[in-house]
Design a protein around this nucleic acid. Structure first.
Lengths: 118, 118
DNA sequence: TCAATTGTTCGTTGATTAACGAACTATAGA
DNA sequence: TCTATAGTTCGTTAATCAACGAACAATTGA
């Protein structure tokens, strides 16, 4: 079994975090972990090959955004919420909120009018 | 004279903003605009060629982070604070605060002890 | 008009990136 | 032990990126 490197809290770099979050696939993964909690790679709802997903998971882990633990054949990913909040207060929340606002707006734009009962 | 494209507020994308902020040079530029206000390219305190700086300025502008206006031969850059706060509430502040926290910590680490009179 | 200042554009280079499939590792369960 | 499942690693490809210098454009001021 391979041991996975996670950076210490103090070594989490702002530019690395912002870069990791700037990819649509990774941002989606982060949003999903935030709403659903810890989950295995296979449950991420992203339309990419598993090798690509594995690489994205690594990018998030090495940036200090996620923690990965092994359970059987699975790798369970979760957000390092406390570490991120301690190091960059308010950043994760602002990103997640921005992601949600943007998503809502896109959904609203797709509808022609405000339907009473959709 | 060339006219510069600035995206509408509604077209500012989260991933583009995060990406633009994930480069150390651009992040430094943003921090400087935040503390010093509007300023011309030549006043940015970054150790790069002016052609490179010009490209970074373009990246920031096209991501919707900065506004650029022309004054004589100069291009004055300023943060689109209101637009960013409206679209992604708290994001810019969190990034700027995180940048400052990280900078302070790095400075503290460089000092061996707490000198009374440095 | 001419020179200096400020910034942009262009072409190049080397590095990095996201994507994929194939091959591999490791564990769980039959 | 054998098979299925879950991920990782590797090699490749096409695209993008940051950096630079040279050449260009636009404006100011002498």
């Amino acid at each position: 079994m391979k041991l996975l490197h996670h950076p210490d809290r103090k070594d989490i770099m702002l530019t690395s975090v912002l870069y990791a979050l700037s990819d649509p696939v990774r941002l989606q993964m982060v949003a999903q972990m935030h709403s659903t909690g810890e989950q295995p790679c296979k449950d991420f709802d992203v339309p990419i090959a598993k090798s690509t997903l594995s690489q994205h998971a690594r990018t998030l882990r090495e940036a200090g955004i996620t923690h990965t633990r092994t359970l059987g054949t699975q790798r369970l990913l979760s957000l390092r919420t406390d570490d991120l909040n301690a190091r960059f207060p308010g950043l994760l929340d602002a990103v997640l909120r921005g992601f949600d606002l943007q998503r809502r707006e896109a959904a609203a734009d797709a509808e022609p009018a405000e339907p009473a009962q959709p």
